Amino acid sequence: MVMRTHADEVNQLPIVPWIEFRDQSGWNDALHLGRKVTWNARFVVQRPEDAVASIFLLRSGTIKVAAASETGLQRTLWLSGPGSTLGEAAMFGHHPYMHHITVIEPCVAYEFSRRVVLEELLPRHPAVSVALISNLAAKCYVMSTQVEEITFLSVPQRLARFFYGLYLARGSERLPLSHADIGDLLGLHRVTVSRTISAMKRAGLLESDTHEIVVTDITALATFVTETTPQDMRP
């Protein structure tokens, strides 16, 4: 039998709707080309149909990217943390912004104009080009994975994969999300999320309160991700 190591787990990290890159060193030589900005919580960075004049590198904090309907309804697509970028898809695709982008936690970011991106960053800073491609790839994988999981996985398995992937991606057992936040990210009703989390707590996988999830047994959670959902774990 082949024993799985922690490295194996990281290499098979589930894709979760939280985009964050711990290593931002590729940007260090290019920061002087940007303009440092700060955003407070609840600040609206962009709205659908806003024109695209620049991209942003998030150095710290968290933003929410949500799709918005004409009637004002919103569905969160993903959260973006340090090392993520904003606006590159719209700039390269020659489209206005399609999403509603709001600050969740206070942010420090760097803004790079279209001219700087096209004339300085891409031709002269290959590490930045790699970072931008990595960000685009992460967003594509998040969207395609959500479709696959809705189609093929049960609710408990979706939640387990989400908690497991987020634990590894952030390097912390404390996940600062409410049940409503999780439901919004995964397209699930809050009551369904709460019932499933209660079952996971009874199984010793998690602890939770109103605003936070704590992973208590990552090994058991990793095992659960790959197994068929037991009857007593169904919401």
Rank of each mutant, 00 (worst) to 15 (best):
L168Q: 15
A222F: 04
S198G: 13
H100V: 04
R115C: 02
R47Q: 07
F162W: 13
F163R: 12
V191K: 12
P106Q: 06
L188D: 06
A169M: 14
A222I: 01
R158A: 09
P156C: 10
H189F: 04
P96Y: 04
H99V: 01
G93D: 07
H189P: 02
A160C: 11
H95F: 04
G171L: 14
V147N: 15
V142G: 07
L31T: 03
T228L: 06
Q74H: 02
F21H: 13
L205C: 12
L122T: 07
K64A: 15
F152V: 04
E148N: 13
D8G: 09
E212R: 14
V16D: 14
H94T: 03
T216L: 12
V10Q: 11
R202L: 11
V37S: 03
R202T: 13
V147P: 06
L186D: 13
V193M: 12
T62E: 15
E119C: 01
P126W: 07
G87N: 09
L185Q: 11
Q12C: 08
R174I: 00
S208C: 08
S178A: 02
L86M: 13
I213V: 15
R158F: 05
L177I: 14
P17T: 11
Q74Y: 02
Q46R: 06
M3Q: 08
V117Y: 05
D8S: 10
P48V: 03
S60P: 13
Y164E: 01
F43S: 07
I133Q: 05
A180F: 06
H94S: 11
Q24I: 07
P14G: 10
K201R: 14
E49T: 05
P82N: 15
L186Q: 13
P106D: 09
L185A: 08
M1T: 10
V142N: 15
L159I: 13
K36L: 07
H211K: 09
M91Y: 02
S198V: 05
E148Q: 15
A30I: 08
L159C: 11
S178N: 01
I218S: 11
P235L: 05
R47N: 10
M91R: 06
V16F: 08
T192F: 01
P126S: 12
V155D: 12
W39T: 03
I133P: 00
S129Y: 04
V225P: 03
P82V: 01
A160P: 02
N28Q: 14
E212T: 14
A127P: 09
G165N: 13
I15R: 11
E111P: 04
M98Y: 08
S134Y: 04
M143I: 08
R22Y: 09
G183E: 04
A199R: 15
G26T: 07
L205I: 10
G171T: 15
L136F: 00
F152W: 14
T5D: 05
